[in-house]
């Protein structure tokens, strides 16, 4: 599709100081390659200094990530971003966009994200928050400290997961989900407290997981979809031309993030398996890992588990209305219908 265009300029007017907290870590390419160039640099430049942006990450503001809706809602920042599964404790519908096994490839994930936006906003506006865009992180994959060739090899293994749908998934394939706080995962993998861990291909490479694991699967379990949110009261108060300027900017940011999600997914793998030439975005692993390519049975297992366990369990958590929204909006894209 054609890129939405960020306006080249903004007419002079009352100055605006905007505060935004976006990605979890300041080193993530989603931050350095998209947020900084657009939010911190392009917005003040193209608005001729009318809009200035104070931009930071969750880590810099000592946030855990699950409080972003409340952060935006209470007006601490004007714009906030966070991964949807982490926010699902407050807004369970958000989890449904990114269930484990829902989207085997990124194109489908994008279609679902675009389709669900109106319904998600209807839910969020009760809390004074509105989603501007939903974007992906690199595919969530399995890293293990021992060799494996297919998902069925994970049977009996301890796998560090996060979020309910991955828990359901890991349990169903016969592995044992382990809950360990993120800062402790590296050493937990190092010492074998857990055998495997699930994270984004890029996040794993950045968090130096290749130092403590040997095999990485390239089968996408989910996409760690995230969203940019604004405080509705602030948004409605904005001068319409400023609002249009920011809205168009986020359309372009959205496209860039999806493009990045696509390249970063592969880049995380190539960096982890030590292909120096193709590794552009993430740190190159000193000790190359082995890539475990998905076998056909794996994809079938993922789809079956999604239909039989992950989806019904999510509707149980979220309520019958979520099942209806799913069938209306997502099922036509995913091809898997929810049957109560």
């Amino acid at each position: 599709s054609a890129y939405a265009q960020m306006p080249e300029s903004l007419p002079a007017g009352a100055p605006l100081r905007l505060s935004a907290v976006t990605q979890p870590l300041p080193t993530q390419p989603q931050f350095t390659r998209v947020d900084i160039p657009y939010l911190r640099e392009a917005i003040p430049k193209r608005s001729n200094g009318r809009i200035s942006v104070q931009l930071s990450t969750h880590a810099e503001r000592n946030l855990a990530g699950n409080e972003i809706v409340r952060l935006v809602r209470s007006g601490q920042v004007d714009i906030g971003a966070g991964t949807l599964s982490t926010l699902s404790g407050d807004v369970p519908l958000l989890d449904g966009i990114d269930l484990a096994g829902l989207s085997p490839e990124i194109g489908q994930a994008k279609k679902i994200a675009e389709a669900i936006l109106p319904a998600a906003n209807k839910e969020l506006e009760r809390f004074g928050v509105r989603l501007l865009a939903i974007y992906p992180f690199p595919a969530q994959v399995v890293f293990c400290r021992q060799p494996f060739t297919s998902l069925s090899d994970l049977k009996g293994k301890k796998v560090r997961t996060f979020g309910n749908s991955l828990n359901d998934f890991i349990t169903t394939i016969g592995a044992q989900p382990v809950s360990i706080g993120f800062p402790e995962v590296y050493s937990a993998l190092e010492r074998g407290v857990t055998d495997c861990g699930i994270t984004g291909t890029g996040s794993g490479a950045s968090a130096r997981w290749p130092e403590v694991t040997t095999h990485v699967s390239s089968l996408a379990l989910s996409w760690a979809l995230a969203g940019y949110m604004v405080n509705v009261a602030w948004w409605n108060r904005l001068d319409p031309e400023v609002r249009n300027f920011i809205e168009a900017t986020f359309k372009e940011i959205n496209d860039k993030q999806w493009e990045l999600g696509h390249t970063a997914t592969r880049d995380g793998i190539t960096c982890s398996i030590g292909l120096a030439d193709e590794c552009k975005l993430h740190p190159l692993a000193a000790r190359p890992m082995t890539e475990v390519k998905p076998v056909e049975a794996d994809q079938a297992l993922v789809t079956k588990t999604f239909r039989d366990v992950v989806l019904p369990n999510w509707v149980k958590r979220c309520g019958a209305r979520c099942g209806e929204i799913y069938n209306q909006v997502i099922a036509p894209i995913s091809g898997v219908e929810y049957r109560p």
């Binding site: 699950n66 982490t86 404790g89 996060f162 979020g163």
Partner: peptide, 18 residues
């Protein structure tokens, strides 16, 4: 009060109401 408004639950297996 805010957790009541959201009817918030944690992300653990038990889904404890916050």
């Amino acid at each position: 009060e805010e957790s009541a408004l959201f009817d918030a639950h944690d992300n653990s297996a038990l889904r404890i109401p916050l």
